[in-house]
Design a protein around this nucleic acid. Structure first.
Ligand SMILES: NC(=O)c1ccc[n+]([C@@H]2O[C@H](COP(=O)([O-])OP(=O)(O)OC[C@H]3O[C@@H](n4cnc5c(N)ncnc54)[C@H](O)[C@@H]3O)[C@@H](O)[C@H]2O)c1
Ligand SMILES: NC(=O)c1ccc[n+]([C@@H]2O[C@H](COP(=O)([O-])OP(=O)(O)OC[C@H]3O[C@@H](n4cnc5c(N)ncnc54)[C@H](O)[C@@H]3O)[C@@H](O)[C@H]2O)c1
Lengths: 214, 214
DNA sequence: ACCACCTTGTGATTGTTTTCACAATCCATT
DNA sequence: AATGGATTGTGAAAACAATCACAAGGTGGT
C-alpha cells in the first residue's frame, strides 16, 4: 500500500505507533532481532491483525513466514513519527507543568529536544531549568530563528493562551501542543493538538459512578 | 432514552463532557441561563447533532423550541461525571510531575481533591506540597482508610510501576490513572486509564513530517 | 526442487461513531 | 385554542475503525 500522499491514516493508528516503538525498543534491548505480529500484539494487549493493518498504512515492513525485523521496524516507525528529525521544542510558560515537561527525559528518548523555555515573569528569566534556559517571551521570534525550534508547547494560564498563540504563530511555529484548558482559534495551516488532562481523570470518575450505581 | 444501565456509552462521548462542562460554566458566569445546541456547538467547534446525541445517552435535558437550561445541564453533567461526589485522589510519586499535578487547581474546579502524596524518598516524607502532605508509601493502606481516597495517580518511574500498582490494588483503590510509559497488568474489576503524553507530541511531529513531505 | 509449515498483507465483514433529516413538542402571540 | 417559529431527540444513513479469514509469499528441511 501507499506511495502517494492521499491515503488517510486513522488517528488511532498514529496514537499506537509510540507503543509499538516502546515495545520494539525492549525487544532490541533483549537481543531479539525478529518478532511476529502475534507475539508483539500479545505484549501490547491488542490483536495481531490490528498491528499488521496499522503498519500496512505505511508500507510492507514484514517478512512473510517470519515476522518483522526489530531494528528495521524501529527505523521505519522513527521515520513515520519524525523522530529521525530531532525536532526542537519551545515550552511557553515556565511554571509547574512547563518545568516538569522540560526535565522529562522521555522526549529525548523519542527524538525530541526541549531547546528553550519562555515566560514573562522577570524573576524566572535567565534561570536554567536543567540544561534549558528561560528566556523572555519577547525573544520568541529571535530565539526561534537562532535555535530552529518547530513545536511550541503552551503551559500558560488559559486566560492568556489565545494571545500567546497569536505570538507563537507570528514567530513562525507550525505546530502547537496546548495544555491550557481552552479552545484555541488557529488558522487552517497550523497543526494544533490539545492535551486535556482533566478528561482522563473524569473518565475514571464517571466509570466509578457507573460501576457503583448499577 | 435510558433508565436501565445496559446502554453502552461511547468513550468519545464521555471525553467531550468536560468540554461541555467548561463552556457551560462560562455561560453561567456571563449570566446566560438558556443555550441552544447550535450556539454551544459553534463555540466548541463541533456539530449540534453530536452535542444533542451525546446528551441523549444520559437523558432528556433540553426544552424543545428553547434549548438547554444552563445551570440544570451543568448539574446533570456534574452528576454523570461523578463531580458531585467530591472524589479524593492519592498521587503516588512526589516528583516533578506528581507535585505539578498536586498543585493544579483544575482538579478542585472539577470536584476532585488531591488528598495525599506518597513517595519512598525519605527526604520528601513529611513535607507539604501546597496543602497536601507527602507520606511514605508504606502508609498507603492506612491513609486510604483514614482519608477515603478512591483514585490513585501513578507518577513514578516506569520500572517500579507494576509493583506499585499491586500495592495500590491491595490497598483497595478501584481506579488508577497511570502516567508511567508502561502497560500495567490489572485485574478485570480495576478501572485503568493510561495517560501517555508522548503520543500527543509525536502526533504533531508526524503531521509535520507528512505536511512537509507531500 | 519440492513440500510442509509459518506469518504477512489485505479484501470482506462486522462493529462503532458521526452526521443527516425530520417528527415531536414546546413557547409566544394573538 | 390555534398558529407560527424554534429547537430538541432520535431513527436511518453514512463514515470510519477493528476484526476476520485467507491468498500470497516466505523459510527450512530433505
Ligand atoms: N499543573 C498541572 O498539573 C496542569 C495540569 C493540566 C493542565 N494544566 C494547565 O497548564 C497551564 C500551566 O499550568 P501550571 O500549573 O504550570 O501553572 P503555573 O502558574 O505554575 O505556570 C504558568 C506560567 O506561565 C507564565 N505566564 C503567564 N502569562 C504568560 C505569558 N503571557 N507568556 C508567557 N508565560 C506566561 C507564568 O509566569 C508561570 O510561570 C495552565 O493552563 C493549566 O491549566 C496544568
Ligand atoms: N515529567 C514529565 O513531564 C512526565 C511526562 C510524562 C510522563 N512522565 C512519567 O511520569 C513518571 C514520573 O515522572 P517525573 O518526571 O515526575 O519523575 P521524578 O523522578 O521527578 O519523580 C518520580 C518520583 O517517584 C518516586 N518513587 C520512585 N520509586 C517509588 C516507589 N516505589 N514508590 C513511590 N514513589 C517512588 C521518586 O522518589 C520520585 O519522587 C515517570 O514514569 C515519567 O515517565 C513524566
Amino acid at each position: 500500500m501507499l506511495s502517494d500522499g492521499m491515503v488517510v491514516i486513522p488517528q488511532a493508528t498514529i496514537s499506537r505507533l509510540p507503543l509499538y516503538f516502546r515495545v520494539l525498543n525492549e525487544y532490541n534491548h533483549l537481543g531479539i532481532s525478529v518478532i511476529s505480529s502475534e507475539e508483539m500484539a500479545g505484549n501490547l494487549g491488542i490483536t495481531s491483525s490490528q498491528l499488521r493493518k496499522d503498519l500496512s498504512y505505511f508500507g510492507d515492513f514484514g517478512i512473510r513466514g517470519t515476522g518483522y525485523d526489530v531494528s528495521d521496524l524501529l527505523k521505519q516507525i522513527k521515520e513515520i513519527l519524525g523522530m529521525d528529525k530531532n525536532r526542537r521544542i519551545a515550552i511557553i510558560g515556565a511554571g509547574k507543568l512547563g518545568t516538569a515537561l522540560a526535565g522529562y527525559p522521555g522526549f529525548k528518548m523519542h527524538g525530541l529536544e526541549v531547546t528553550a523555555l519562555f515566560d514573562i515573569d522577570e524573576a524566572k528569566i535567565g534561570q536554567q531549568e536543567g540544561k534549558v534556559e528561560i528566556f523572555h517571551l519577547s525573544e520568541l521570534s529571535n530565539k526561534k530563528r537562532e535555535l530552529g525550534m518547530e513545536i511550541a508547547v503552551l503551559t500558560i494560564p488559559a486566560s492568556v493562551a489565545q494571545q500567546v498563540t497569536e505570538l507563537v504563530i507570528k514567530a513562525g511555529f507550525k505546530a502547537i501542543w496546548n495544555f491550557a484548558p481552552v479552545r484555541l482559534e488557529v488558522p487552517e495551516h497550523i497543526i494544533l493538538q490539545n492535551e486535556d488532562l482533566v478528561v482522563g481523570i473524569l473518565t475514571l470518575s464517571h466509570h466509578l459512578s457507573r460501576k457503583l450505581g448499577s
